[in-house]
C-alpha cells in the first residue's frame, strides 16, 4: 500500500495533521475538570431521541464539565444528531448490537484514552444525574474499584413489576452469598468504575449481551472491590430500559448458567 503523504501547506498545520494521543484527548475533552480526575460519562442509547436530550441537559446542569460519550447502538431514529446537538460525543455502532456491546464500546474507548473514572448511565432518564457526584466521590476512595448505584438501599420513587423485583432480589441474594457482601441491585446500569475496573470491563471478560449479577461475581473473583451506594432512580418514562426488555425465561436461564460457569471457571483456575 502506498504510504500516505500529505502536501502540507505552509499554514499552521504541523500540530493538527498528525495527532499525538494527548492532543487528541485535549480536543475530545473540551472543558477539562480540575476538581475531578479525568472522568467520562458513557451512555448507551437505542432509539432514545425523545429522552436523550433532556438526560444530557440534566447531566450538564448537575455535573458540568464532564465529557459525555453517547454510544448510539444502531438507532433508527435521530438519537445521534440529538445527542451531538446537546454537546455529547457520539460513537455510532453500524447496527443494533445490544446493551452490553454498546456499553463495552464506551469502556474500550475510555481504556484506550486513559480515563481514570467512567460513569455509566442509562439514556432513558431513569438515573438521576444528581447522584453522579456521589458516585465519583465514592469511587475515588481507596480500596474501591466499582461503585454501583442501588435503587433499593433507600426508599426512592422507583416502582417496577413484582416479577422484576423478584428476579432482581433472587440474583442479588445469589451474588451476595458468592461475594460475601451485601449486593442489593445487580441489574443497576448506574455505576462508576475506576482504573483497573475500566480495563477489566474493556476486556474479554465482559459479558457480551448485558452485565448483571454474573459480572459483579466475576469482578469480585478477580479481586476488584465492589461497593453499593444509594441513588435516586425514577421509573422509566415510557418503556422498560434496554436490558430489561429481554425475555424473562431467557434472562433467568442465562443468569443461572452464567453465574454457574463463572464460579466453575474460577474454581478450576485455583
Amino acid at each position: 500500500m502506498k504510504v500516505l503523504s500529505y502536501q502540507v501547506p505552509q499554514s499552521s498545520l504541523k500540530q493538527t495533521v498528525i495527532l499525538e494521543n494527548d492532543e487528541f484527548e485535549n480536543t475530545f475533552i473540551k472543558k477539562p475538570l480540575k476538581s475531578y480526575p479525568k472522568t467520562l460519562i458513557i451512555i448507551p442509547a437505542y432509539n432514545e431521541e425523545k429522552n436523550i436530550g433532556a438526560v444530557l441537559e440534566m447531566i450538564q446542569q448537575k455535573v458540568p464539565g464532564i465529557p459525555i460519550l453517547v454510544i448510539n447502538d444502531g438507532s433508527s431514529d435521530t438519537t445521534e444528531s440529538v445527542a451531538r446537538s446537546h454537546g455529547a460525543n457520539v460513537i455510532s455502532l453500524p447496527y443494533n448490537s445490544g446493551y452490553g456491546v454498546a456499553l463495552q464500546t464506551g469502556f474500550i474507548f475510555a481504556a484506550r484514552k486513559n480515563f481514570a473514572i467512567v460513569i455509566q448511565m442509562d439514556s432513558d432518564g431513569q438515573h438521576d444525574p444528581k447522584s453522579v457526584k456521589n458516585l465519583i466521590e465514592e469511587v475515588q476512595k481507596d480500596g474501591v474499584d466499582v461503585v454501583i448505584g442501588s435503587r433499593f438501599l433507600e426508599s426512592g420513587s422507583y416502582k417496577s413489576s413484582f416479577a422484576r423485583r423478584a428476579g432482581i432480589f433472587i440474583f442479588a441474594k445469589i451474588a451476595s452469598i458468592i461475594c460475601g457482601q451485601k449486593v442489593t441491585d445487580p441489574t443497576s446500569g448506574f455505576q462508576a468504575l475506576k482504573g483497573r475496573a475500566i480495563h477489566f470491563a474493556a476486556s474479554d471478560h465482559y459479558p457480551p449481551d448485558y452485565p448483571d449479577a454474573d459480572f459483579i461475581i466475576l469482578m469480585h473473583r478477580h479481586g476488584l472491590k465492589v461497593k453499593e451506594i444509594p441513588v435516586t432512580m425514577h421509573a422509566s418514562p415510557d418503556k422498560e430500559s434496554m436490558h430489561h426488555g429481554h425475555k424473562t425465561i431467557y434472562y433467568i436461564f442465562k443468569m443461572f448458567l452464567s453465574i454457574f460457569v463463572t464460579v466453575l471457571r474460577n474454581v478450576s483456575k485455583r
Binding site: F24, I91, S92, L93, S97, F109
Partner: peptide, 19 residues
C-alpha cells in the same frame, strides 16, 4: 469489529473537525 468501527469513526470525525 463493530466496536472498533464505532470508535475509529468517532476518532476520524474528531480529526476531520480539527483539520
Amino acid at each position: 469489529l463493530t466496536q472498533s468501527i464505532g470508535i475509529l469513526d468517532l476518532e476520524k470525525k474528531t480529526l476531520e473537525r480539527q483539520i
